[in-house]
Simulated assay, not measured.
Amino acid sequence: REPQTLARACDLGIAMQLTNIARDVGEDARAGRLYLPRCWLREAGVDPEGLLARPGATPALKSVVARLLREADVLYTRARRGIAQLPLPCRPAILAAALLYAEIGRELEGRYALDSITQRARVGGARKLALVARAGFASPWLSGGAPLPPLDAAMFLIEAIARHPGRPLREADDGALPQFLRVLEIFERLERAERYGD
């Protein structure tokens, strides 16, 4: 509940949401939704209404998607400082979640050539396992670094938590590995639900 840690948690949540937005541009447009910043679209020469009417993976749209992923990457980097402030048993699961979501952006940039209109970027099973292993090995060695100010957009959350302190969290009775596996199971269920409408 420490404000710096909460600020970094907000960074991670926003980074993950930006990654989702970048990955789902086509799906969202076909459903009549547009989450990309309209001012960025206009700066790139993309008509927002035209995008909704006729989604296409144009170079201009790809530049906006790339810009959104760069913003997410800045936030993933900031978030790692907060992961370092978490209790050691929590770190692997949260770092794995951060790495897995950031990897969606890498896939979108690489294999999918920033085309989130005609295809949906996914991370393969082997790569997921490698990232989970990396999180397990790297999480004890993360460092917090100097404090960073919270994002303006997240201040209301941090202030709300400060006004309403909850009861202290207790250490988990069942250890870090089961917690870690539960977080991964949640991500797998979410991905299945997105893919198959479960």
Rank of each mutant, 00 (worst) to 15 (best):
I158W: 11
R134I: 01
P147Y: 12
G50K: 10
E109A: 15
A9L: 14
R189Y: 03
D152I: 02
P178N: 06
G56M: 04
V65M: 06
G124K: 11
E194Q: 14
P37L: 13
A133Q: 11
F187N: 11
E107R: 12
V123R: 04
R67Y: 12
P55I: 08
A193G: 12
V65C: 06
A98N: 09
D173Q: 12
G50C: 10
L68W: 06
S63V: 10
R127T: 09
P59C: 08
S143N: 03
R134L: 05
R42I: 15
R192C: 02
R134A: 04
A72P: 11
A9C: 10
G145T: 10
P92T: 02
R54H: 15
F180S: 00
A121W: 10
A98H: 05
A57S: 07
R70C: 11
A160E: 12
A153V: 12
I161P: 01
L12E: 07
P59N: 03
P59Q: 09
G124T: 13
G56H: 10
P87K: 06
S116G: 05
M155N: 01
E159W: 10
E49W: 03
Q119R: 05
S63L: 13
Q4N: 11
A9G: 07
A162Q: 05
R81S: 07
L142P: 07
R33F: 10
R54K: 13
L51K: 07
R163C: 08
L18T: 05
D198V: 08
F137M: 01
A113T: 08
G110A: 13
A135C: 05
L69I: 15
G136W: 14
D47T: 06
G145A: 04
L131N: 03
G124F: 13
G82N: 00
R111P: 06
R134F: 01
Q119H: 04
W40I: 02
L184W: 08
D152M: 02
A153E: 07
A102Y: 04
L52H: 12
A72K: 07
A172G: 14
G13L: 14
D73K: 04
L169Y: 03
L41G: 05
I94D: 00
D28V: 09
D152P: 05
C39D: 15
L51F: 13
D174V: 07
D73M: 09
V132S: 09
D152F: 08
A84M: 02
G82F: 00
P59R: 06
R81H: 06
I117H: 00
D115W: 06
R54T: 11
R38Q: 15
E194Y: 13
P147T: 14
W40Y: 14
V74M: 08
V64N: 04
R81D: 01
V183L: 13
M16C: 13
Q85I: 02
I94S: 00
L61A: 07
P178M: 04
T19A: 14
E103C: 05
P178G: 03
I94F: 04
A172R: 15
R122K: 07
A133T: 11
